[in-house]
């Protein structure tokens, strides 16, 4: 391997994430009642695992992830990182959002720097950012601003920013959803490579069944009875296959059909 992401000296052990009867509701549009979105969600992500959350659009996947990151508090139940109940933005987590969310006036390098943990010595920080930019293949665009690079590049910069935080839990919200098919596959491979070099816990949201099957140790399927009822865990599937996996492995085909049926698509 030509580029191995060196494990930073500050590398910390991956953390476990547990959902304990998590429920979340939002005030309805007119504010007259509470609309439940998630109910009684319980599962545990072991340290170093890659777990994907799969579910139909609008079922509360982002809401679930935001609860782990401390970006919004659950209505009932709790999320724990290792043994601590999440009660605010947690320095152990880093979020890769569905959109790149880069600061448009900063260069790619400066944007990635934003992810560095507080009080990183500047020399160490520079080296780490350069290494990450190399990893995601943006070295030659380091000085560009987000508006001057393609959507795929911006998304990679966003991933690099999350990795710069050296997180014990990496939260990814449909990070590759907006990419073209080819770039998506490259990014998935990249994620696996990063994980191999530094096996942190990855909790990733997706609505792409194939992505879930190719990447994860386990797939958590969220479903709901009707589009207005709250979602909960329907099944946890463990594709017990060594990675990297071939996308046309027949064992995956069967699981794909099964997952699609769970999500209401008959084949």
């Amino acid at each position: 391997m030509r580029h191995v992401l060196t494990r930073p000296d500050t590398a910390l052990d991956a953390a476990a994430v547990s959902f304990e009867n998590l429920g979340k509701s939002f005030p309805s549009r007119d504010g007259r009642y509470e609309q439940p979105v998630l109910t009684d969600v319980s599962f545990r992500v072991e340290p170093g695992e890659i777990v994907t959350v799969l579910g139909p659009s609008g079922c509360g996947k982002s809401t679930l992830l935001r609860a782990v990151g401390g970006l919004s508090a659950p209505t009932s139940g709790a999320v724990r990182i290792d043994d601590d109940v999440v009660s605010g933005i947690d320095p152990r987590c880093a979020v890769g959002f569905q959109e790149p969310r880069l600061l448009p006036w900063r260069t790619i390098t400066k944007n990635v720097e934003l992810g560095l943990p507080a009080r990183t010595p500047s020399g160490t920080g520079r080296r780490r950012v350069a290494e990450l930019l190399d990893l995601v293949g943006l070295t030659h665009h380091a000085g560009h601003r987000p508006g001057e690079v393609s959507g795929g590049m911006a998304q990679r910069a966003s991933l690099a920013r999350a990795l710069a935080r050296n997180p014990r839990v990496l939260l990814l919200d449909e990070p590759f959803g907006a990419l073209d098919a080819l770039t998506r596959i490259r990014m998935q491979d990249l994620l696996l490579q990063v994980h191999r070099a530094d096996p942190t816990t990855v909790l990733m949201v997706t609505h792409d069944v194939e992505e879930a099957l190719v990447l994860s140790d386990r797939v958590v399927v969220l479903t709901r009875e009707t589009p207005t009822s709250p979602a909960t865990v329907a099944e946890v599937l463990a594709p017990d296959l060594a990675r990297p996996r071939s996308r046309d492995d027949t064992r995956l085909t069967a699981m794909r059909t099964h997952l699609l049926r769970l999500l209401g698509v008959e084949r």
Binding site: M1, R2, H3, D134, L135, V136, G137, L138, T139, H140, R156, A181, L182, T183, I185, R186, M187, D189, L190, Q193, R196, V214, P244, R245, S246, R247, D248
Partner: peptide, 22 residues
């Protein structure tokens, strides 16, 4: 779709498809 290379020797050029110099 493309089959993942099975060895651990994937270079980044393949992975990200980006020119990385050299």
């Amino acid at each position: 779709m493309s089959t993942h290379s099975t060895s651990g020797s994937t270079t980044l050029d393949e992975v990200t498809g980006e020119p990385l110099g050299g």
